[in-house]
Design a protein around this nucleic acid. Structure first.
Lengths: 110, 110
DNA sequence: ATAATTGTCAAGTGGATACTTAAGTAGTTT
DNA sequence: AAACTACTTAAGTATCCACTTGACAATTAT
């Protein structure tokens, strides 16, 4: 089955949840199985599996099942779409600040 | 009223919503009033105000009311907490990849 | 074969939340 | 003063979503 395109929408929604961020942080330490992932989190294994689905569909995590063990790891390129979105916003408003000193609208700052 | 500390949790949750991202994108073009912000979005003005509250509490947007008009603008440092979180994750797993070649899933390591 | 491990799936629940409507406030214009 | 503009606030609704339970499947160990 073809892997879904990781949109900024999917990715940011995925990262918006604390449990999923905890999973990302754990996975940053290295690949690990589902049940070992679940141990430190105080949610059930089933919940962890659901989070992993979201993370996988958003392109943040890759998993592979061998035998009865599913091993999860970070998908290194997954966060780049967020980087890009942020960079785009920043370039927009920074570029704007270059062109016109916006003291008119904002006398207080800068 | 002291401004709340913008945690990574607040910020990523705020950015997880498409309407709020649309607001961020519009604001990247420059400061604008609430009602003009609402025009292109097909949600009510009241909904926009609620989103703006979330964005402001997360430190992504700053607003200022003069007369009866509230002007909204990007808070330039607001996204840095996301940058930092991403950079931290990346440095973790990249550092790890430097140290040990991760040949295949080796469950009992270290 | 039996049991234990590791994960999967379906269905349901409770709480969060995005949104609407409607009424109200406070500046601004005429 | 009256009308209009630009929000603001409260309350209700409906959907979403994180999480649980419980039954099941598949692999590995005894």
């Amino acid at each position: 089955m073809p892997r879904k395109k990781p949109s900024i929408d999917r990715v940011l929604h995925a990262l918006g949840d604390p449990s999923r961020r905890a999973i990302m942080e754990k996975l940053s330490q290295g690949p690990i199985s589902v049940s070992r992932l679940a141990e430190p989190l105080d949610i059930t294994l089933a919940a962890v599996v659901q989070h992993l689905q979201v993370l996988e569909e958003s392109g943040l995590v890759q998993t592979e099942k061998v035998g009865r063990v599913r091993t999860c790891r970070i998908e290194p390129g997954g966060l780049s779409v967020v980087d890009k979105w942020i960079a785009d916003r920043r370039s927009m408003w920074e570029h704007r600040l270059d062109r016109l000193g916006d003291f008119l609208a904002d006398p207080d700052e800068e």
